Computed example of a mutant assay.
Amino acid sequence: MFKTKESITNFVYSFGAAIVILGALFKMTHWSLGPITGNVALAAGLITEALIFLFFAFDPPKSEESYAWENVYPELLDETAERQPRKVVNKVENKELEVSLSSKLDQMLADAKLDVSLFERLRGGIDKFSSSVDQINQTVDVSASTHKYNEQLNLAASHLESMNALYALQLEHGQKQSEFSKKYVEDIQKSAAQSEKFNEELQGLTSNLNNLNRVYGGMLSAMKS
């Protein structure tokens, strides 16, 4: 498990950090485990942290020999190796290299039959494609406008249908109101006729009472005489 010094050091640091975290947790949550209260756990954690720092003070840092630089730079193993000067390319060689590259590029273009006329046709094709894309965009715009116009027409038709339904409802309500008013007038007329008949009957009753009073008065007069 502990094959190297670094593994032992890593275990000590990790184990001590776990004790410190548990001590802080016991203190903040006021936990207790038998005689181990929050204060005891926090004190144990802080003491452990102090011991870890003390142990770290006596842990020497790694030396340069611990890094195997020779695996990356094998020339470090050769103590007699000297610094190799960089090769500087003069202007003539650079120009020859440019000419060689240019000639190779021209040869490649010639082998691929890429001449000026081909590039002109390619440019013409790109221009035609661009104009076609513009026409498609215009068609799409017209289609979008037509779709929007159709939506507006459908919305207007829906509003008109709602207005027609409202008008029909209002007309039906008006007809019912007219029938109710007509019936109300008829009831008033009937009530007036009944009132007139009642008045006539009341007048007849009054006339009969007057006649009875006269007869009764005549009888009283006859009895007194």
Rank of each mutant, 00 (worst) to 15 (best):
E98Y: 01
G125T: 06
I136D: 05
E120C: 02
K95I: 02
E120R: 05
A222N: 14
M108H: 09
N150E: 08
V185P: 01
N208W: 06
N208D: 13
K190F: 13
E96C: 02
D106H: 05
Q189H: 13
I136W: 07
T146R: 12
Y167L: 15
K87C: 05
L171I: 06
K91L: 00
G218C: 11
H147E: 13
G125N: 08
L97E: 09
Q189Y: 08
N210C: 03
G174W: 15
S143M: 08
L202E: 03
G174C: 13
S130A: 13
N208L: 09
N164T: 11
Q152P: 00
T206K: 06
N150V: 10
V133Y: 14
N150A: 12
V140C: 07
R123N: 07
G217F: 09
R121A: 00
S131W: 02
L118E: 00
L160H: 09
F198D: 14
E161G: 07
D134I: 04
A157D: 07
N199T: 13
A157V: 04
N137I: 02
A168V: 05
S130F: 07
S178E: 15
K104M: 10
S178H: 12
L220N: 13
V89G: 01
S178W: 06
A157H: 04
F129C: 13
T146N: 14
E93L: 02
L202C: 01
K176P: 00
S145F: 01
G174R: 15
L155G: 06
L205R: 10
N199I: 11
I188N: 08
N90Q: 00
G174K: 15
E93T: 00
A222L: 08
E201M: 04
D127S: 05
T146Q: 06
N137Y: 02
V133A: 10
N210M: 11
Q203Y: 05
V215S: 11
S143A: 14
A168P: 04
L101C: 04
G217H: 11
Q194G: 15
S143C: 04
R86K: 09
E98N: 02
V89R: 00
S145R: 15
H147N: 14
V133H: 06
A168D: 03
R86H: 12
K190H: 10
H147Q: 13
L105H: 13
S102Q: 15
D115F: 01
I136A: 08
M223F: 12
D115S: 00
F180K: 15
D187C: 07
V140N: 02
L209K: 02
S158Q: 09
S102L: 14
L220S: 09
Q107H: 13
Q138V: 02
L209R: 01
Q175T: 10
D106K: 11
V116D: 11
S158T: 08
R123K: 15
T139A: 14
S181V: 08
Q84H: 04
P85L: 00
S100R: 12
G125K: 09
E82G: 01
F198W: 07
L220D: 09
N208S: 12
Q84P: 00
K190G: 02
N94V: 03
